[in-house]
Design a protein around this nucleic acid. Structure first.
Lengths: 92, 92
DNA sequence: AGTGTTTACGGCGACCGTAAATATG
DNA sequence: CATATTTACGGTCGCCGTAAACACT
């Protein structure tokens, strides 16, 4: 499980399909698709149901999504220097 | 920031130096060193003070470590299938 | 000499993009 | 034909390991 895979999962859940998610991640749609498939294979569970016009989270996907979001938030928080965090807090 | 970099940071903090951490991560010591350096560069802060016989966390490293640990714990938790989680709970 | 980290340098795998195939309306 | 995902196929970038250099004792 890698960071970019988590970002792709979150993007698809927000965008509603793989194509728009790929645009928003500045990556080609097949690359994003591959990474989602790879993660699903690693987990042994589908995360998305590929419908005709939209990709919807499976029950497993629904359980996985908040975990992915939380991890990414914590990664973002850890990526900021303490001095910069102070500035961000002021900005809020 | 990538998963393996977080694992390397935690390993060094536990092992006390880069060499033993590399062994425990089943990776060469230069590779681990490169990844730590790369992460430090990305963060803009040193995470470790390289002493004569040991590597010690800097203040920034002290602040970063628990974040890294938490992220890795959550990744591990997210990597387990629901059915497997039930088994693990029974095992506890 | 011995321990520990960094630098240098290729090799190889993995992600990525393009293109083609598959699926559905 | 249009939209959406998967499969196929190279190219390229990055991680890794080996070897050498550097630092300190």
């Amino acid at each position: 499980m890698e960071m970019h895979q988590l970002r792709y999962v979150v993007a698809v859940s927000r965008a509603g399909n793989f194509s728009r998610a790929a645009e928003q991640c500045h990556v080609s749609q097949p690359s994003l698709s591959q990474q989602i498939l790879k993660l699903e294979e690693e987990l042994g569970e589908r995360l998305f149901d590929r419908m005709k016009r939209e990709a919807k989270l499976t029950p497993h996907g629904e359980a996985f999504l908040p975990r992915a979001v939380k991890i990414l938030e914590e990664v973002d928080a850890a990526s900021v220097k303490p001095a910069m965090r102070m500035i961000c807090c002021v900005a809020d």
